Simulated assay, not measured.
Amino acid sequence: MHTRLNPLTQEKGAVALATMGILLSIVSLSLWVVSQRLTNELQMVKRGLAYNQAYAQLHARHASVAMQLRTADINTLQSLESEQLDIAYQTFINSNNTRSVLFTVTLSLVSPSLHIKQDFFRFSSLFWFPLQAVTSDQSNLTQKLFNRDFEPLSASHFQHILEAQKLGSQEAPSRQAMSKESVIWVEGDWELPDDTHLGSLDAPVLVIIKNGNIALGNRASFYGLLVQLDAESNRRNATLEHGAKLFGALVTNAQLTLNNYGNIMYEKNVLSALQQRAELQNIYPVPHSWNDFD
């Protein structure tokens, strides 16, 4: 005996199977779409992370290049350049006869494609120097010299400072320079011992004595600028013993008592060389000059 299926039942079963197939196809398509979106978003996140990492690396290198440019000789800038680094510059002679340099630094990456450009301005910490051997000036001397008021001015304003106590603790042999530093900051009295030689025609030194007296010992020699600063313009002494020589200048805001048994010779070329010494240069980013592009 054979059982006959109802045609209507068969038709309903076929429809159900077809519907299930369609639903499975829709689910599969939805899963594929979601998978593609997740893959694309993951790739975007990876690209974003790579871009941010590259950006941070270029930014850090920009700062490193700027520090190199602070003391770099503009005639040897090609030694710093590479496929990723381009440096352009302009030089300016200021009204005080100092030379300033405007650098444009561009760093580039191929993958990811990224370029960063910024301008940096380099100038000397020594804005002005006196026009005679000994100068007493109580009209805000630090503003003229360093573009700083007296109180904020400190050793941290300068680069590569040799602390006074280190200088005092060293035994400097005769005919030998006490230090290769370009700036010496002293709190209190400062003395250049007998037969000691500090600075040279090509490498003069800036010595700043705050609230102290100055003494150059017998046969001592100094090339550069001595700056004697007193918080209240009190009377201060500057003494050159027999045979002592100062090539450059002495400037003070104190009421000066000069005991000169040696020789003070005004040397403009020494002061100019001091003004251009690499260690005295400052470099700062030019505001609003930052530019990054793909």
Rank of each mutant, 00 (worst) to 15 (best):
T71E: 11
T71G: 04
A72S: 08
D73F: 05
I74S: 05
L77P: 00
L77W: 00
L77D: 01
Q78S: 14
Q78R: 10
Q78E: 15
S79L: 15
S79V: 14
S79I: 13
L80F: 02
L80D: 01
L80Q: 00
S82E: 06
S82V: 07
E83K: 14
Q84D: 09
L85F: 08
L85K: 04
D86V: 10
D86L: 11
I87P: 00
A88D: 15
A88P: 00
A88C: 05
Q90H: 12
Q90P: 01
T91K: 04
T91D: 02
T91R: 03
T91F: 00
F92S: 07
I93Q: 10
I93R: 12
N96W: 04
N96P: 01
N96C: 03
N97W: 03
N97E: 09
S100R: 00
S100M: 01
V101T: 15
L102G: 02
F103P: 02
T104W: 05
V105A: 04
T106K: 12
T106P: 06
S108F: 06
S108T: 15
L109A: 13
V110I: 14
P112F: 05
P112I: 03
S113C: 11
L114W: 07
H115Q: 14
I116R: 10
K117V: 13
Q118L: 03
F121C: 02
F123W: 12
S124I: 02
S124K: 04
S124L: 03
S125P: 04
S125T: 11
F127C: 06
F127R: 15
W128V: 00
F129Q: 02
P130V: 07
P130Q: 09
P130S: 10
